[in-house]
Amino acid sequence: MIKFNNVTKIYPRDTVVLQDISFEIKEGEFVSIVGKSGAGKSTLVHLILGLEVPTSGEVYFKDVNLNNANSSQIQEIRRKIGVIHQDYKLLPQKTVYENVAYIMQVEGRENKEIAVEVPKVLEVIGLENKINNFPNQLSGGEQQRLAIARAFVNNPDIIIADEPTGNLDPYNSYEVILLLQKINKAGKTVILATHDREIINKLGKRVVTIENGKILRDEAEGRFII
Protein backbone atom coordinates (compact mmCIF):
# COMPACT_ATOMS: atom_id res chain seq x y z
CA MET A 1 0.00 0.00 0.00
CA ILE A 2 2.78 2.38 0.95
CA LYS A 3 6.30 1.89 -0.26
CA PHE A 4 9.46 3.83 0.49
CA ASN A 5 12.19 3.22 -2.05
CA ASN A 6 15.68 4.45 -1.04
CA VAL A 7 14.23 7.67 0.30
CA THR A 8 16.56 10.41 1.47
CA LYS A 9 15.35 13.74 2.77
CA ILE A 10 17.79 16.56 3.32
CA TYR A 11 16.59 19.93 4.57
CA PRO A 12 18.46 23.14 3.76
CA ARG A 13 21.86 23.58 5.40
CA ASP A 14 22.57 19.89 4.84
CA THR A 15 20.37 18.62 7.66
CA VAL A 16 19.87 14.96 6.79
CA VAL A 17 16.57 13.76 8.25
CA LEU A 18 16.08 10.49 6.41
CA GLN A 19 18.83 8.51 4.82
CA ASP A 20 18.26 5.85 2.19
CA ILE A 21 15.09 4.46 3.78
CA SER A 22 13.29 1.52 2.17
CA PHE A 23 10.29 -0.33 3.59
CA GLU A 24 6.79 -1.34 2.68
CA ILE A 25 3.49 -1.24 4.54
CA LYS A 26 0.88 -3.72 3.39
CA GLU A 27 -2.87 -3.24 3.46
CA GLY A 28 -4.39 -4.02 6.85
CA GLU A 29 -1.11 -3.80 8.73
CA PHE A 30 -0.61 -2.05 12.08
CA VAL A 31 2.84 -0.50 11.97
CA SER A 32 4.42 1.57 14.72
CA ILE A 33 7.24 3.90 13.81
CA VAL A 34 9.33 4.66 16.84
CA GLY A 35 12.29 6.83 17.51
CA LYS A 36 13.50 9.72 19.61
CA SER A 37 12.16 13.22 19.02
CA GLY A 38 13.71 14.53 15.81
CA ALA A 39 14.40 11.04 14.48
CA GLY A 40 12.40 11.77 11.34
CA LYS A 41 9.00 10.28 12.22
CA SER A 42 7.00 13.37 11.28
CA THR A 43 8.96 13.81 8.05
CA LEU A 44 7.99 10.25 7.16
CA VAL A 45 4.32 11.14 7.68
CA HIS A 46 4.70 14.32 5.60
CA LEU A 47 6.24 12.33 2.75
CA ILE A 48 3.26 9.93 2.71
CA LEU A 49 0.86 12.88 2.56
CA GLY A 50 2.79 14.50 -0.26
CA LEU A 51 3.45 17.53 1.93
CA GLU A 52 7.11 17.13 1.23
CA VAL A 53 9.07 15.67 -1.65
CA PRO A 54 12.03 13.37 -1.06
CA THR A 55 15.45 14.72 -1.97
CA SER A 56 16.08 11.37 -3.65
CA GLY A 57 14.20 8.08 -3.90
CA GLU A 58 10.47 7.48 -4.32
CA VAL A 59 7.40 7.18 -2.14
CA TYR A 60 4.49 5.15 -3.54
CA PHE A 61 0.89 5.19 -2.39
CA LYS A 62 -1.03 2.33 -4.05
CA ASP A 63 1.28 2.37 -7.09
CA VAL A 64 1.15 6.16 -7.47
CA ASN A 65 4.61 7.68 -7.29
CA LEU A 66 4.03 10.76 -5.13
CA ASN A 67 7.01 12.50 -6.73
CA ASN A 68 5.16 12.66 -10.04
CA ALA A 69 1.57 12.90 -8.81
CA ASN A 70 -0.42 15.93 -9.96
CA SER A 71 -2.35 18.06 -7.50
CA SER A 72 -5.70 16.32 -8.01
CA GLN A 73 -4.05 12.91 -7.43
CA ILE A 74 -2.49 14.24 -4.25
CA GLN A 75 -5.86 15.62 -3.09
CA GLU A 76 -7.44 12.23 -3.79
CA ILE A 77 -4.76 10.45 -1.77
CA ARG A 78 -5.02 12.87 1.16
CA ARG A 79 -8.78 12.23 1.33
CA LYS A 80 -8.09 8.51 1.69
CA ILE A 81 -5.80 9.05 4.65
CA GLY A 82 -7.06 10.00 8.09
CA VAL A 83 -4.31 11.81 9.93
CA ILE A 84 -4.01 12.68 13.59
CA HIS A 85 -1.36 15.35 13.62
CA GLN A 86 0.95 16.02 16.49
CA ASP A 87 -0.19 19.68 16.52
CA TYR A 88 -3.81 18.64 15.77
CA LYS A 89 -4.17 20.99 12.78
CA LEU A 90 -7.75 21.85 13.66
CA LEU A 91 -9.62 24.59 11.81
CA PRO A 92 -9.66 27.39 14.43
CA GLN A 93 -12.50 29.34 12.86
CA LYS A 94 -14.86 26.39 12.68
CA THR A 95 -16.80 24.79 15.51
CA VAL A 96 -16.22 21.24 16.72
CA TYR A 97 -19.11 20.05 14.56
CA GLU A 98 -17.89 21.96 11.50
CA ASN A 99 -14.33 20.67 11.92
CA VAL A 100 -15.53 17.10 11.58
CA ALA A 101 -18.16 17.91 8.94
CA TYR A 102 -15.56 19.71 6.81
CA ILE A 103 -13.72 16.45 6.14
CA MET A 104 -16.94 14.89 4.81
CA GLN A 105 -17.77 18.02 2.82
CA VAL A 106 -14.35 17.91 1.17
CA GLU A 107 -15.23 14.38 0.02
CA GLY A 108 -18.47 15.74 -1.42
CA ARG A 109 -20.71 13.70 0.88
CA GLU A 110 -24.41 14.50 1.15
CA ASN A 111 -25.70 16.85 3.85
CA LYS A 112 -28.07 14.17 5.18
CA GLU A 113 -25.22 11.71 5.62
CA ILE A 114 -23.11 14.35 7.35
CA ALA A 115 -25.94 15.22 9.74
CA VAL A 116 -26.14 11.55 10.78
CA GLU A 117 -22.43 10.66 10.89
CA VAL A 118 -20.88 13.65 12.62
CA PRO A 119 -22.94 13.50 15.86
CA LYS A 120 -22.25 9.75 16.01
CA VAL A 121 -18.49 10.23 15.80
CA LEU A 122 -18.58 13.10 18.30
CA GLU A 123 -20.47 10.91 20.71
CA VAL A 124 -17.88 8.14 20.38
CA ILE A 125 -15.08 10.52 21.38
CA GLY A 126 -17.18 12.26 24.04
CA LEU A 127 -17.47 15.71 22.52
CA GLU A 128 -21.22 15.58 21.91
CA ASN A 129 -21.79 18.40 24.41
CA LYS A 130 -19.27 20.72 22.80
CA ILE A 131 -20.45 20.69 19.19
CA ASN A 132 -20.75 24.49 19.05
CA ASN A 133 -17.44 25.24 20.75
CA PHE A 134 -14.44 26.48 18.83
CA PRO A 135 -11.11 24.62 19.16
CA ASN A 136 -9.61 27.34 21.35
CA GLN A 137 -12.42 26.71 23.86
CA LEU A 138 -11.37 23.07 24.29
CA SER A 139 -8.74 21.58 26.57
CA GLY A 140 -5.61 19.97 25.08
CA GLY A 141 -7.07 16.51 25.48
CA GLU A 142 -10.36 17.55 23.90
CA GLN A 143 -8.55 19.07 20.96
CA GLN A 144 -6.65 15.84 20.48
CA ARG A 145 -9.90 13.84 20.59
CA LEU A 146 -11.38 16.18 18.02
CA ALA A 147 -8.36 15.57 15.79
CA ILE A 148 -8.99 11.83 16.20
CA ALA A 149 -12.69 12.19 15.33
CA ARG A 150 -11.71 14.08 12.21
CA ALA A 151 -9.29 11.37 11.15
CA PHE A 152 -11.90 8.61 11.52
CA VAL A 153 -15.06 10.23 10.22
CA ASN A 154 -14.46 9.57 6.55
CA ASN A 155 -13.79 5.90 7.13
CA PRO A 156 -10.40 6.24 5.42
CA ASP A 157 -8.34 3.33 4.02
CA ILE A 158 -5.47 4.24 6.25
CA ILE A 159 -5.01 6.07 9.54
CA ILE A 160 -1.76 7.80 10.34
CA ALA A 161 -1.39 8.85 13.95
CA ASP A 162 1.53 11.14 14.71
CA GLU A 163 1.98 11.10 18.52
CA PRO A 164 -1.78 10.75 19.13
CA THR A 165 -1.39 10.27 22.86
CA GLY A 166 1.05 13.11 23.47
CA ASN A 167 -1.40 15.23 25.47
CA LEU A 168 -3.56 12.51 26.97
CA ASP A 169 -3.54 10.96 30.42
CA PRO A 170 -2.78 7.23 30.59
CA TYR A 171 -6.46 6.30 30.65
CA ASN A 172 -7.33 8.33 27.54
CA SER A 173 -4.12 7.16 25.83
CA TYR A 174 -5.21 3.61 26.35
CA GLU A 175 -8.65 4.45 24.90
CA VAL A 176 -7.06 5.91 21.77
CA ILE A 177 -4.85 2.90 21.24
CA LEU A 178 -7.85 0.60 21.71
CA LEU A 179 -9.69 2.60 19.07
CA LEU A 180 -6.76 2.28 16.67
CA GLN A 181 -6.63 -1.47 17.27
CA LYS A 182 -10.35 -1.74 16.64
CA ILE A 183 -10.02 0.13 13.37
CA ASN A 184 -7.13 -2.13 12.38
CA LYS A 185 -9.22 -5.20 13.13
CA ALA A 186 -11.88 -3.80 10.79
CA GLY A 187 -9.29 -4.15 8.04
CA LYS A 188 -7.81 -0.67 7.92
CA THR A 189 -4.12 0.10 7.78
CA VAL A 190 -2.78 1.97 10.81
CA ILE A 191 0.54 3.77 11.07
CA LEU A 192 1.39 4.97 14.54
CA ALA A 193 4.35 7.24 15.11
CA THR A 194 5.20 7.54 18.78
CA HIS A 195 7.92 7.56 21.38
CA ASP A 196 5.67 6.04 24.09
CA ARG A 197 7.50 2.90 25.17
CA GLU A 198 4.62 1.40 27.15
CA ILE A 199 2.13 1.57 24.32
CA ILE A 200 4.49 -0.06 21.83
CA ASN A 201 5.41 -2.86 24.18
CA LYS A 202 1.74 -3.64 24.86
CA LEU A 203 0.76 -3.71 21.20
CA GLY A 204 2.92 -6.59 20.02
CA LYS A 205 2.70 -5.44 16.39
CA ARG A 206 5.25 -4.56 13.72
CA VAL A 207 7.70 -1.88 14.87
CA VAL A 208 10.01 0.14 12.63
CA THR A 209 12.69 1.86 14.69
CA ILE A 210 14.34 4.94 13.23
CA GLU A 211 17.49 6.48 14.55
CA ASN A 212 19.53 9.29 12.99
CA GLY A 213 17.44 9.09 9.84
CA LYS A 214 18.09 5.39 9.26
CA ILE A 215 16.01 2.26 9.93
CA LEU A 216 17.63 0.60 12.90
CA ARG A 217 15.22 -2.33 13.16
CA ASP A 218 12.07 -3.55 11.43
CA GLU A 219 10.51 -6.38 13.44
CA ALA A 220 7.17 -8.16 12.96
CA GLU A 221 6.42 -8.25 16.68
CA GLY A 222 8.72 -5.57 17.89
CA ARG A 223 9.40 -3.82 21.13
CA PHE A 224 10.56 -0.34 21.95
CA ILE A 225 14.33 -0.63 22.23
CA ILE A 226 16.53 2.40 21.65
Binding site: S72, Q75, R78, V83, L91, P92, Q93, Y102, Q105, V106
Partner: peptide, 18 residues
Protein backbone atom coordinates in the same frame (compact mmCIF):
# COMPACT_ATOMS: atom_id res chain seq x y z
CA UNK B 1 -5.18 35.20 9.79
CA UNK B 2 -6.35 32.07 8.01
CA UNK B 3 -2.93 30.96 6.78
CA UNK B 4 -2.84 27.92 9.05
CA UNK B 5 -6.41 27.08 8.22
CA UNK B 6 -5.67 27.13 4.49
CA UNK B 7 -2.73 24.77 4.91
CA UNK B 8 -4.84 22.40 7.05
CA UNK B 9 -7.55 22.38 4.39
CA UNK B 10 -4.91 21.42 1.83
CA UNK B 11 -3.67 18.61 4.07
CA UNK B 12 -7.11 17.05 4.43
CA UNK B 13 -7.40 16.98 0.64
CA UNK B 14 -9.69 19.93 -0.11
CA UNK B 15 -9.50 21.08 -3.71
CA UNK B 16 -8.05 24.51 -4.42
CA UNK B 17 -11.46 25.93 -5.33
CA UNK B 18 -13.07 24.54 -2.22
Amino acid sequence: NSKEEISTMKIVGASNWF
